[in-house]
Design a binder for these strands. Sequence first.
DNA 1: TCACACATATGTTTTTTACATATATACTAT
DNA 2: ATAGTATATATGTAAAAAACATATGTGTGA
Lengths: 123, 123
Amino acid sequence: MGRKLDTERGCIYSLKRISRFIEPSLLLFLSREPGHGYELLEKVRSLGFDEDQVDVGGVYRTLRRMEREGLVRSRWERVGGRRRRVYLITEKGKGALEEWVQRIEERRRALGRFLKVYYRRRR
Amino acid sequence: MGRKLDTERGCIYSLKRISRFIEPSLLLFLSREPGHGYELLEKVRSLGFDEDQVDVGGVYRTLRRMEREGLVRSRWERVGGRRRRVYLITEKGKGALEEWVQRIEERRRALGRFLKVYYRRRR
DNA sequence: TCACACATATGTTTTTTACATATATACTAT
DNA sequence: ATAGTATATATGTAAAAAACATATGTGTGA
């Protein structure tokens, strides 16, 4: 999106994402069961972090990066002639998820503090 | 920081910030009362979004950008010989804050969904 | 006068995001 | 048949944001 495009779109304010959620979300779903990119994309979208759509390219790119870093492994699968790269979480990936969860709980509390300050006077 | 530096530091996992909180936090505090950068820096830090310290440069840069965008205005003040650039929120800035609050509430709910999925099976 | 807190700011590099584009197969309606 | 849509996996690139370093100057207290 970006400020430039916001203006082009005619939006008054340009609010961007408060992000970095693709990696933890992918690890989360992969910690439950193996999955492929397209499927994981839908699951990540279901969390609703993004008012728009989650970037498809971002999901695939993040999966490949996580594989390079040893957080996940992958293998090709063929389901009815359709090829899929199915990802599995590694032990290292599980450790990373645990850390993400701590981080996310912290972040959620911080957002709570933000809102507490916001609503302190009004309403 | 970044992945490279994480490795250099000897960290096992490289978790980065889930960010974009400086702008909304500055608007939040300025919606309560005018303030200058150094003071606002401390207030933003008090929200605890960041496990580390909030970037000083980021705060000042964001304030200047917001002024260019008309979200805040500023004037120099002299307090005991010490010069400060005091910022005030504008009507446009208040509008932007309202939108940020919506966004932040959404985001908080999304984090809640994330954690709900995480804790669904374990514990 | 030395250190430290207060105060503001910019330069630069790296990382992340956003958006566009490319490719290929399977299925579904016309 | 074939055109369109859903499934599926990527990469290229530009813009934005973040991280980190550095520069500068004043006030205050030891």
